[in-house]
């Protein structure tokens, strides 16, 4: 074997080893393009599916949005109409408020007037209570005078009774004397005077006399109201001086069983008299009864 052949064998071997090493290294480090292709294809398919799903979802969402838009439009229109009605109601309420405020103002003025009137009435009541106190004092005084008069009357009645008993006794003595005188005159043919029974006559006659005495009520004056002037608090009565009415007398005005007022007579005519109204409980009318005594 020649030297050249040996050198060539060695070079061939070294170069083949070098090239085989390069090839093995390259192939071992080469990428798996098929795997990459499959992965990319799967990725593309998944992306397409995802895109389809997303487009479907977009469509559904858009439909939903359209529906909600329609609903919102309808609700907006209904709310607009509601707003219009509420505006109308607000205007009505404002007009009512204005009317009520006017009423409040009028009521405030009425209340103010009422308070003023109340104060006046309170003042009048005070004055009337003062007058009532004066009248009550007068009444007490008159009652005292009446009691005194009654006691005097009783004393006098007792005196009258003693005088009457004395009178009866004297009459009985007289009748007895007449009897005696009759008995004495009989022998002389003279008729004696007829004895009168004094005792039996005494009781009934006196009772009759007391019964016939006019009661206080019977001598009261009665008339009717003929005219009324409420502005000047005056009224006229249908009886005058011909019936015994005098200035200063007081007539009580009644209607059925109700006390109406008093009339203090200030002017007297022959058939009519005029007076001032006092202690007014009700307004007197023409035709009401006028009397100096109360006859309930």
């Amino acid at each position: 074997m020649s030297t050249l052949t040996k050198i060539l064998i060695v070079l061939l071997t070294v170069s083949s080893l070098f090239l085989c090493g390069i090839v093995v290294t390259y192939v071992a480090n080469a990428d798996d393009y098929k795997q990459k292709y499959d992965d990319q294809r799967d990725d593309i398919r998944a992306s397409k599916d995802k895109a389809k799903k997303l487009t479907k979802q977009i469509k559904e969402k858009s439909e939903e949005m359209d529906r909600s838009k329609k609903k919102l439009n309808s609700s907006v229109s209904s709310l607009k109409t509601e707003v219009r009605t509420l505006k109308g109601k607000i205007q009505d309420l404002e007009s009512e408020k204005a009317a009520l405020s006017e009423k409040v103002n009028s009521w405030a003025s009425i209340t103010k007037d009422f308070y003023e009137t109340n104060d006046k009435q309170g003042q009048l009541l005070k004055n009337t209570l003062g007058e009532l106190d004066v009248l009550q004092a007068k009444q007490i005084k008159q009652k005292k005078e009446l009691d005194e008069t009654t006691s005097i009357l009783r004393e006098r009645m007792a005196i009258i009774e003693t005088l009457e008993s004395e009178n009866d006794r004297l009459l009985e003595e007289r009748s007895e004397l007449q009897n005696r005188l009759g008995k004495g005159l009989l022998p002389f043919g003279k008729e004696p005077a007829r004895a009168t029974a004094v005792t039996p006559r005494r009781g009934p006659s006196r009772r009759t006399a007391t019964r016939e005495a006019p009661a206080t009520r019977d001598i009261a004056l009665h008339g009717l109201v003929t005219a009324v002037d409420l502005r000047n608090s005056m009224a006229s009565v249908s009886i005058g001086s011909a019936d015994g009415v005098k200035s200063g007398m007081k007539f009580h005005i009644t209607r059925r069983d109700d006390f109406i007022c008093d009339i203090l007579i200030i002017d007297v005519d022959s058939e009519e008299s005029v007076g001032i109204l006092e202690l007014i409980q009700q307004n007197p009318r023409i035709g009401d009864n006028a009397s100096t005594n109360l006859n309930f």
């Binding site: 074997m1 052949t5 040996k6 064998i9 060695v10 061939l12 071997t13 083949s16 080893l17």
Partner: peptide
């Protein structure tokens, strides 16, 4: 020897 080297290649 050279036969073995060729065989290795």
């Amino acid at each position: 020897i050279y036969t073995g080297i060729i065989g290795i290649a």
